[in-house]
């Protein structure tokens, strides 16, 4: 069969999600942020909740997330997305409210906001992009940076004596009674992408049940900050990041 005969509308099996805008993403080639945006867009489209979803974008490389997914957005000060989401959800309980945050944003400057939003059991979704580094500002160490990992502020590798230990946020918040669903996923293979999408869908569905906060961590790459090619960064993530941040569900109050 000719390629031209295959490329017919009736044979279409995958296309760019309808809610991903035509704006060219400013992300570096191969950056995980774009892949995760796509999954959020697909879930919102499939659930038919485009008009009832409000996203809160962070400070970090994904600050412009509002340019890429065609829904309503707010833009929070650094780390404060869970506070804005709290107010938004309480004022508009019928809306689906989610934050999208990097590890510098969520696990460093915004630690208080995320911990207390979890503890209060806010009925929001948190998408946490853990690439182990401050991508946007030039690759400085984050609380999530692995021991021995080289960053621009730990040029000889993270030394726990000097820089402390990596913070495993998802496991920490699992101890808080206000969290309903906590999972850790990745987007480096097609199978991983499918699982991550199901997890994001479940998180949005749980937020409708008013049973507490749902948290989807995506173990991600920052190939620019890590100073690797996108393909090498994915392999490095599997070998090193997954050891400290293993993939899988951590908590599900409905199971």
């Amino acid at each position: 069969m000719d390629i031209a005969d295959i490329k017919r509308p009736e044979n279409l099996v995958y296309r760019k999600p309808a809610l991903i805008t035509d704006n060219v993403m400013h992300y570096c080639p191969g950056c995980s942020h774009g892949t995760v945006h796509k999954l959020i867009a697909e879930v919102i489209e499939e659930m038919g909740i485009q008009d009832s979803t409000i996203g809160i974008s962070p400070v970090g490389c994904s600050v412009f997330a509002y340019n890429y997914i065609d829904i309503d957005w707010e833009e929070a000060a650094h780390g404060r997305a869970p506070a804005l989401a709290t107010a938004t959800k309480r004022l508009c309980p019928d809306k689906h409210v989610f934050t999208y945050q990097g590890d510098g944003d969520l696990a460093s400057i915004g630690t208080a906001e995320i911990i207390h939003a979890c503890s209060r059991g806010e009925n929001i979704v948190v998408i946490f992009i853990n690439n182990g580094i401050y991508g946007m500002t030039g690759g400085q160490m984050a609380p999530t940076t692995l021991i021995g990992m080289k960053t621009s502020t730990t040029p000889y590798g993270r030394d726990p004596k000097l820089n402390g230990f990596p913070m495993v946020i998802a496991d920490m918040i699992a101890h808080l009674d206000g969290t309903a669903y906590i999972t850790r996923q990745s987007v480096h293979t097609a199978a991983a992408v499918r699982k991550a999408k199901s997890a994001i869908r479940k998180a949005f569905e749980y937020s409708e049940k008013n049973i507490g906060l749902s948290f989807v961590e995506i173990v991600a790459t920052c190939n620019s900050g890590w100073k690797m090619s996108p393909v090498d960064a994915n392999a490095w993530m599997v070998e090193h990041m997954f050891r400290k941040y293993p993939i899988g569900d951590i908590k599900d109050v409905l199971k």
């Binding site: 069969m1 005969d5 295959i6 490329k7 017919r8 044979n11 279409l12 099996v13 995958y14 296309r15 760019k16 999600p17 991903i20 060219v24 993403m25 992300y27 080639p29 191969g30 950056c31 995980s32 942020h33 774009g34 892949t35 796509k38 987007v187 480096h188 293979t189 097609a190 992408v193 499918r194």
Partner: peptide, 18 residues
């Protein structure tokens, strides 16, 4: 199979199948 399209961060791949 769409594997290429699923992992593409910039959503630039369209897939057809028969």
């Amino acid at each position: 199979c769409s594997a290429c399209a699923l992992v593409c961060p910039d959503s630039v791949i369209t897939v057809y199948r028969v």
